[in-house]
Design a protein around this nucleic acid. Sequence first.
RNA 1: GCCGACGUAGCUCAGCUGGUAGAGCACUUCACUCGUAAUGAAGGGGUCCGGGGUUCGAGUCCCCGCGUCGGCUCCA
Length: 645
Amino acid sequence: MEFELPDGTILHLADAATGADAAAAIGPGLARAALAVRIDGELRDLSRPLPAGNDHRPRLEMLTERGGDDALALVRHDAAHVLAAAVLDTYPGVKIAIGPAIENGFYYDFEFPAGTVVNDDDFPLLEAAMARHIAADERFTREDVPVREALARFRAEDQPYKVELIEDLIANQGARTVSLYTNGPFTDLCRGPHAPSTRRIKAFKLQSVAGSYWRGDSSRTMLTRVYGTAFFSAGDLKAFEELLERARANDHRRLGPQLGLFGFSETAPGSAFWYPAGTEVYNALVELSREMGGERGYTEVKTPILYDRSLWETSGHWQKYREHMFTTESEDRAMAVKPMNCPGHCQLYAMRPHSYRDLPVRYAEPGPLHRNEPSGTLHGLLRVRHFTQDDNHVFCTEDQIQDEVARALRYAFDVYDVFGFETSLELSTRPENRIGSEALWDRSEAALRAALDSQSLAYRVNEGDGAFYGPKIDMHVTDALGRSWQLGTCQLDYNFPERFELTYTGADNAEHRPVMLHIALMGSYERFIGILLEHTGGGLPVWLAPVQAIVLTIADRHAVYGGLARDRLREAGLRAELDDRDESVGRKIRDAELRKIPYMLIVGDREAQRDEVSVRAHGEGDLGATPLREFVERLAQAARTRAAR
RNA sequence: GCCGACGUAGCUCAGCUGGUAGAGCACUUCACUCGUAAUGAAGGGGUCCGGGGUUCGAGUCCCCGCGUCGGCUCCA
């Protein structure tokens, strides 16, 4: 047999040679380091005979610890098997479900015997059991067995989940054999591949336990999922834990109350209370939308919060989302609080006649929305029951779609640029369940593509992921810790104009149906602030900082000049405070640093005499003295231009 | 909504097997008048998430509810 190695050389091997043989043939070091072998892109166990390429010479590549995410996924999958083995040791009678590698780790789902509750107190015991399986250097051995044999085996072991999986493999894929992997006393149904032995797991840790539905189906059994992670070195594990620690320090739920921005109360689950400082941030963002949206032709409107049920029947919400709306009644009329602005905007559009000359109509509304989200899904500012979207709705003709989408995309990039986010785009196309003709979908998808292309934007296509009423473009950003968030969306909608019977009079004097675009860039202001806090760790840029500069006096006698300096800042439209407490300068600086105030202005005899301030920037330290007037101008400029810092 | 964990002062937390609640920071007052990340001293502050129950006695044990956290399902 012949294989082509990554460097282009040809490897000659005897027939029936295994991956391990290949590694040995390349070199003894590689033979020791190899985890698995990749043939034409497919990973296989080292112990399996290599497949002969019939009509071509297969490419062969050895996977080692340095193989990046693939290597990590492999060893984490190994660790999942070791976890299952450890759980079987510790809890006889446990039923095992599935245990894959996932991003950053692995998990295994179990059904514990009735009455047995497992939580993180049990981790030391389980980790010790795992460590024994690893120290024993158990080999992962693969056998391909007929499905009947596998079924008999798992039935005998009373493992109903494995039986169900095999039955599905037979039914859906016509499987006749399945592969089983054994390490030590434990055998699992598994596609593989695995490393040669458990010893290759150099560092691991169990992380958490959580409930999860069997096969992700909420009507089926709730299993217990144990999460863990594994690495090739203790150092890598430690680095990962430090990253988690950093993410914890940036947790907006911790930062928000700490910085006095917002808080939560049991009296309003899933709804933030905004303190003055948080309200400054919030308002600054709304102001950004007003200013940038206004410049681009999106005009602000205000629509009611509470509507008669008939509006929701027209929009379809009453039938589809009633459980998730807050309802009330008035004089025997059922009413619901709006979960989105679009029906109100459709109503607003419908209340007056429109000529084609008026289009496009672009409504913007920072309208407060309420959605009755299930209690278990609430999460800080990121998933709430009360929030405000930077919502824009454009009513236009079909011919205008491309221009309007392009306009929205430019708007989005302009907004994201202000925050310095990396952005990526996704186009979602027609789903299985949809309304409208094929010709309509062809036209609308083409319009979105044309809009993306007209701006020379790169994007990924998600086939079949669009809304049932139209395709959409989703906008994602990556934060400072490398996490991706979906923020913006631009959705094409033929459904609402139809339901609300919206019309405009065309040049032909006939009535036509407009098309609607739903555009949100930051998404919800609440969620956006959450993301911004996670991204910045709370050190907001000057234009967003609730307090932009704080004047710190050295002694009592500087309070008058300090007050004057603060007033100058305020007169320039800046948010400034004076700290003239009876405390040491060191103390005042420390407090201001902890509040992450961008600039600290220290004033003593020297500054008071020369009309100066000593500037200290957050996280940077002393920048020296500057004339007060000069500093005020500079800071006002930075705030006005929304400079990054 | 489902599974598990958690809920003690404004915050972070201690409180062993049931015996009448404590620390640090914050806050208040006083002294100090200070030059780039914590001056010192004194003091005030608690329906131990809520409601039932067991007990001579419950922060602690049991039950129900609420909220929060980790996930799962959901997310127009």
